[in-house]
């Protein structure tokens, strides 16, 4: 059986690459950490991979605003490669800073013709005006997202960001709802469970195909039950007897999709 290959994109300031790599490896994928310079120079071909993962961090220091410089670089220097990759039905996931990058490239929420790469939403400063590191309850929504297929209706994951407030014009939000593109919502509208004040409590979205997925929470930080902040309170966490954390299913789904669809 072919082993799905994941390209984990790095650049200056990327810092969740190692645990994202571990997550995909645990899910059964072959992984490569690739600096964006090597994609731009052609030393590495994106088309050799099945999944593109843009991990969390502070790409280029989040100068100007979170993720924007990496987004501009991708949009202008990797336009064709990205369009071919997406057009081939392959998978893209952006976590935290990666989500910010996907939104700023326009790959999320995307349009009917993804070739346009126009930004239609944004991730703004948290309403608390601070960096927030905390665990939040998420409600899984009905969506075409391949990463969350069959996942639990309630998922518990950590967030750690200062710019995570998803906001968009009313028509874009209406489209998202109409197309079922909202993948995760913060389970409680109030602060702090909605840690950033996102519109419609949006924590993660996918494109219309469900193959491009971005989220602010960090599934790669909940791979085993010992990552759960209350694992010592056995009754709550160990009920299922599983040692697997909620986050791993997202990576497994991606790997299984690649296998099932022989991408």
């Amino acid at each position: 059986m072919m082993q799905p290959k994941v390209l984990i994109l790095r650049t200056a300031g990327t810092n969740c690459d190692a645990e994202t790599e571990t997550a995909f490896q645990l899910a059964g994928a072959e992984t490569a950490l690739v600096h964006i310079q090597n994609l731009i120079s052609g030393k590495v071909n994106l088309s050799d991979y099945h999944i593109l993962a843009i991990p969390g961090g502070f790409s280029y220091g989040d100068d100007i605003s979170a993720g924007i410089l990496l987004a501009v670089e991708m949009k202008h220097k990797l336009t064709d490669e990205l369009n071919r990759f997406v057009g081939a039905g392959k998978l893209v996931i952006g976590i935290c800073n990666g989500f910010q990058v996907l939104v700023r490239t326009g790959l999320l929420p995307g349009t009917d013709s993804s070739a346009e790469m126009t930004q239609r939403a944004t991730l703004a400063m948290n309403t608390s005006a601070k960096f927030e590191c905390r665990w939040v309850d998420l409600e899984t929504q009905e969506s075409p997202c391949v990463f969350t297929k069959g996942i639990k209706p309630c998922v518990y994951l950590p967030v750690a960001h200062a710019e995570g407030r998803f906001t968009a014009p009313a028509d874009v939000l209406a489209d998202l709802e109409a197309n079922n593109q909202v993948v995760f919502r913060y389970a409680d509208s109030g602060y702090p469970n909605n840690p950033n004040g996102s519109d419609a409590d949006i924590a993660g979205i996918c494109d219309a195909t469900g193959r491009i997925f971005g989220l602010m929470p960090h599934p790669e930080r909940f791979l085993t039950k010992w990552n759960h902040p209350r694992w010592t309170r056995i009754a709550e966490v160990q009920g299922s007897g599983s040692e697997e954390g909620d986050g791993l299913a997202i990576f497994k789904n991606a790997v299984n999709y690649v296998k099932a669809n022989r991408l």
């Binding site: 190692a18 969390g56 010992w226 990552n227 902040p229």
Partner: peptide, 20 residues
């Protein structure tokens, strides 16, 4: 404490803040 990222690198198993 919440302004510091204490979960990055994915290895923290006892957090600085604990309890129900």
């Amino acid at each position: 404490i919440r302004q510091y990222d204490h979960g990055v690198q994915g290895g923290v198993v006892i957090n600085p803040l604990v309890g129900v």
